[in-house]
């Protein structure tokens, strides 16, 4: 079963949804990208307490389904929790959605949607 090459050959960016510190750090590594004007799409979203869940969902949607140039979506676990149904519902191979810990929220494998699948498969 060969994969359709067009599915991933243009995917070369990472996207981040996270709190300010996580986004800052990851952007510092040189991940940040803003597409050319006029649409100027960013590949990151800074989330704080004031950010609406719908905004997060919108960004998640945009990174996972609309944009075809993103290979990996990094999302803080505590933010993924806020849109858990959406994250759990996403099962495509591309882009790869990765839940990462944040400064204030250590990583909890119990909540990770992929880890859930792993455990389900091994019947634990």
């Amino acid at each position: 079963m060969a994969l359709d090459k067009a599915q991933y050959k243009d995917r070369e960016f990472l996207a981040v949804i996270g709190d300010e510190d996580s986004v800052t750090g990851i952007l510092l590594a040189g991940v940040g990208h803003v597409t050319d004007p006029p649409d100027s799409q960013k590949n990151y979203l800074v989330v704080d307490q004031k950010t609406e869940d719908s905004t997060i969902e919108g960004a998640f949607e945009a990174f996972t389904t609309e944009r075809k140039d993103i290979a990996i979506v990094l999302i803080n676990q505590h933010i993924a929790d806020r849109i858990r149904t959406k994250v759990d519902g996403f099962s495509a191979a591309f882009p790869s959605v990765l839940e990462i810990p944040s400064k204030d929220h250590p990583y909890d494998p119990e909540k990770d949607s992929v880890m859930k699948r792993v455990r389900k498969l091994f019947g634990e």
Partner: peptide
């Protein structure tokens, strides 16, 4: 930092 990001330097293939 979040504002000055322009072109991704770190990419994946």
């Amino acid at each position: 930092i979040t504002e000055t990001a322009r072109q991704a330097k770190f990419r994946v293939r």
